[in-house]
Simulated assay, not measured.
Amino acid sequence: MANILGNLNRAIIIGLVLLALVIFGFHGQSLGSAWGNWMLRATHAWVGLLWIGLLYYFNFVQIPTMPKVPAELKPAVSKYIAPEALFWFRWAALFTVLLGLGIPGLSGYPLGAALTFQPGYAVIGTGMWLGIIMMLNVWGVIWPNQKRALGIVDADADTKAKAAKTAMIGSRINFVLSFPMFYCMVTQQGALA
Rank of each mutant, 00 (worst) to 15 (best):
T43L: 15
G131R: 02
Q188F: 12
L115Y: 00
A113D: 15
A34P: 00
N137A: 05
H27G: 00
I169Q: 05
V138S: 09
P144I: 12
T116L: 05
L136E: 12
H44F: 09
A114K: 04
Q118H: 15
L86H: 03
L115G: 00
G100V: 02
P180E: 09
I4E: 07
L177W: 03
M1D: 12
V141Y: 09
F117P: 01
I169G: 05
P83L: 00
G32M: 09
K68L: 15
A11T: 10
G6Q: 08
C184M: 13
V97L: 10
A93T: 06
M168H: 10
F117M: 08
L40E: 03
N3I: 09
N137H: 03
L99Q: 02
P110Q: 05
V77T: 08
S171E: 01
I132Y: 01
A155T: 15
G25R: 07
N137K: 05
I173Y: 01
A42S: 11
G6V: 09
N174C: 08
M181S: 00
G140P: 09
G108S: 02
W88E: 08
L18W: 10
N145F: 04
V153I: 12
H44T: 05
F89P: 02
V176Q: 02
N174W: 01
A149N: 03
V69K: 04
P75M: 06
S33P: 02
V153G: 02
G53N: 07
S30P: 00
A85F: 08
V97C: 04
K68S: 15
H44R: 11
F58N: 01
G170K: 00
I63T: 12
G112D: 10
T159Y: 04
G105R: 02
A157M: 06
N137C: 10
L177E: 09
A20L: 13
F24W: 09
Q189L: 14
K74N: 07
W139D: 09
I52G: 03
F60E: 04
A92N: 09
T166H: 01
G125V: 06
K79W: 07
Y183I: 14
A82S: 14
W91A: 08
I4R: 08
L101M: 14
A164N: 11
W46T: 04
I4L: 15
A161F: 08
Y121K: 07
D158A: 13
K74H: 05
F60T: 08
K79Y: 04
Y56D: 10
I14N: 04
S107D: 14
K74I: 07
L18A: 11
L150S: 02
W143M: 15
V17L: 15
F58T: 01
E72Y: 11
L177P: 01
L115K: 04
M185E: 00
D156S: 07
P83I: 03
A82V: 15
L5F: 15
Y56H: 12
Y183L: 11
M168R: 15
F58L: 14
L130R: 04
T65S: 10
A71L: 13
F26Y: 11
K79H: 14
R172F: 13
F175A: 12
P67G: 11
A191N: 05
W129N: 04
L115R: 01
W143K: 11
F60Y: 13
K79A: 13
V153F: 06
G170I: 01
